[in-house]
Design a protein around this nucleic acid. Structure first.
Lengths: 193, 193
DNA sequence: ATTATCCATTAACAAAAGATAAGAAGGCTA
DNA sequence: TAGCCTTCTTATCTTTTGTTAATGGATAAT
């Protein structure tokens, strides 16, 4: 039942069965309904979550409107990393958009894992290396491409996101307003004819 | 003489004198003139660099024009992480803007360090955690703020960058053209009067 | 069945950014 | 000193986005 989490970890490091058991023990399982906020604005986040099933988003509140910062789907760790790592109140809100199944890792248990199974440091390092590359590519897409190109790139690279998140969420993730994304879509339709 | 590098590492993990010696042995020292490219377009980067003195930038080439992706100054690791980590040809160019002193770490030597001093995994993990937060804040600034606000934030948070990099480099880092940044500066001057 | 709510589209206007070109200031070289 | 190059500014015009508001469709609630 923990196969998704363990096979995710095995992509980075090889654990013994004993270590795998230990890892499983340190995670708890949690099911949340759609639109459930796992990190509230201003709270100090003391947990990270591995998405077994479902999807969620990280967003900010700017003058009352929700601005998406990142989107998460199955087999990703989700959380307010800044709040989790620095222990400061979160300016990010994390909300699961679909009813989701999560493996929950508390900060305490993570620290325990680091000392008990040093290999976990290697796992997290490698995972962060991957995430770093993704983050850098994302920054690159903002300086290199205009919104229309970013949307087309998303169509090509992550078409699944289009089905799982409403358009206004995708729009702010692209750095534009929902109205502007609607116009972009019309332009693309006319280009294709 | 290696005090900058060692004191940087000591911010994350504590090494014994023996380990410190070992670390120093695995880095080599290199001085490069201004405008020197330490990573060329299309090359496979097999080194990372710690900036002892100087500054540099990561940029892309889009239809012949240089688009800045990130700026680096003293006490930061600089390199084409994607090419270094994945072994693929770099679509990023890394150029030192000032004449610089660098500590050079080869991929081979880094792998050696990981096995010889497992603590280095902890060091890199923690450094990546910090960089991850910075990257996330940078993405946040693109979805949350317009160019004018991003420039004002840079004025507040990193005023040193304004002196060390020409304006057209800062402009593309903000995701706009040099012409547009010049207009933004004029708008700000008029606001302040 | 009929409200109510949410979401995407469309329109109209204002604001900002891109593209292109021309000019001014500073530094570097011959 | 003269010429060249780089950088920044300014102007003009075009394109795109933001803002606001109205509309229609879909879905859920009463």
């Amino acid at each position: 039942m923990h196969s998704t989490l363990l096979s995710f970890i095995s992509r980075y490091v090889q654990l013994t069965s004993k270590e795998e058991e230990r890892v499983i023990d340190t995670f708890s399982f949690r099911e949340v309904p759609e639109k459930y906020k796992i990190v509230e604005l201003g709270s100090i986040s003391k947990e990270l979550y591995f998405i077994k099933k479902g999807c969620g988003r990280l967003f900010y509140l700017k003058e009352g409107v929700e601005i998406t910062g990142f989107l998460f789907t199955e087999n990703m760790f989700i959380g307010s990393f800044e709040s989790f790592l620095t222990g400061t109140p979160s300016n990010q809100i994390i909300e699961m958009e679909e009813a989701s199944s999560l493996y929950v890792l508390s900060k305490e248990n993570l620290e325990m894992l680091y000392t008990e199974i040093p290999k976990i440091n290697v796992f997290v390092r490698k995972m962060l290396e991957e995430r770093m590359i993704i983050a850098q590519q994302l920054v690159g897409s903002f300086v290199l491409n205009k919104p229309e190109e970013r949307y087309e790139a998303m169509l090509r690279a992550n078409p699944d996101l289009l089905n799982r998140f409403p358009q206004h969420i995708l729009a702010t993730f692209l750095g534009i307003t929902p109205v502007s994304l609607s116009r972009i879509r019309q332009r693309i339709i006319k280009k294709e004819q």
